[in-house]
Write a protein that binds this DNA or RNA. Structure first.
Lengths: 220, 220
DNA sequence: ACCTGAACACCGTTCAAGT
DNA sequence: ACCTGAACACCGTTCAAGT
């Protein structure tokens, strides 16, 4: 039995709440996959009409942003090493690991280059670490952006690779193309063709990140 | 008047061709924007029924892939510097500039991590340059992947930034969030809040790329 | 105040039938 | 062989009406 309207708030008591919608959205994504999240399916999951959702979120984009913010709030804030360079590395790695664990975020990431207010501490950590390493504020922003490009690219590409595994044997697929290269024209590629799939499935995020940070700081 | 069927090929002569469809798709994207490219609109542009398109392409994804391949074929193949490290830099920059000029490719890029057969020369150039710089074949692949992550991320984020400029003042926008940060908790971010938009709109692709490549080769 | 059905303006794709 | 209309199974979103 829903409670009677509070004195100042009148009218029909709510049967659907923002948190209920968010929980249903998370459940739907985890169960059926990110691409199955539609306003209509979400409404069915909540047990309400599609149009009801628009009383609690402005539109689908708003829903996605809120979902990402909620997720970012749960991001671990690990103990930070003393060395400023290591702090930069650690912050970037936490962001990456968090986002990689829920790859649907890529869709939202490409819509807004902000990872949510909860992730701002990571930006702060990188900026602070960079300044401690001798960067000017401008250089610190440049380093942050480079790291973010690298990280976003890694997540986006990795998330897609996982998705289209099924048809990687059909003609025109990536592996297919690599195997078909002309050894005379593209010798290095041809020599690696057989090992390409296994070489590119290794996790080299940390390696590239260290290269980027070290190279940047070295050039100061 | 369409020519009569050739001896071996019989039946109704084609009124729609693959190249015609591709040209129409390019025109539609250039005129109305990438997000307006649908099979139905494309058919209208060609002057045929939507269903006819499926005689010339397998599905929309196939259309996109062909479009990207055609575009990659037009990519300039600039004179390559003698220094192997500079060749790596040049190849990556050409890819980036080419893709940035037609940002819709981002959609296809996240679907398949291959830029099309015409871009394979870039992969080859990076691998060859890396090996000349002292990399093992495996390390060359690692460097290539790092560069590609960084490049793809830059293009994807940059393309999106341009798209949602209109509503960058509405509540919840990126700029809004940066301005609202707590100076006590996030001092570096707060100090840069006013300059954030201008600092992050500068083109720092080359800077990050050089850092990445230099840092990687230094660590060998 | 909150919820709903009906409707609008779209999608990609299939398939049997026409020329 | 090529093209088509009709249809299927969807989308996000608005809006007037109901409780």
């Amino acid at each position: 039995m829903p409670p009677a309207p509070a004195p100042g708030r009148m009218g029909r008591p709510p049967r659907t709440s923002r948190v209920e919608i968010m929980a249903a959205a998370r459940h739907l994504i985890d169960r059926d996959g990110w691409e199955k999240l539609t306003m209509r399916r979400l409404a069915a999951e909540v047990g309400t009409a599609p149009t009801t959702l628009y009383h609690h979120v402005r539109d689908k984009d708003d829903l996605l942003t809120q979902l990402l913010d909620d997720y970012a709030d749960r991001m671990p804030r690990p103990a930070m090493p003393l060395d400023p360079r290591e702090r930069v590395i650690t912050a970037a790695t936490v962001i990456r690991d968090t986002l990689a664990a829920w790859p649907w975020v890529v869709e939202v990431l490409t819509r807004d280059d902000q990872v949510g207010r909860a992730a701002l501490w990571m930006v702060e950590t990188v900026l602070a670490g960079a300044v401690e390493c001798g960067c000017s504020p401008e250089q610190a922003v440049d380093l942050y952006r480079s790291i973010w490009y690298y990280t976003a690219g890694e997540i986006l590409i990795r998330a897609t690779r996982g998705r289209d595994r099924p048809d990687s044997s059909r003609p025109g697929s990536r592996d297919d193309r690599i195997r078909a290269v002309d050894a005379a024209e593209l010798p290095h590629l041809a020599a690696l063709a057989d090992r390409w799939a296994s070489l590119t499935s290794r996790d080299t995020y940390a390696l590239g990140l260290r290269s980027l940070v070290d190279g940047f700081l070295q050039a100061l």
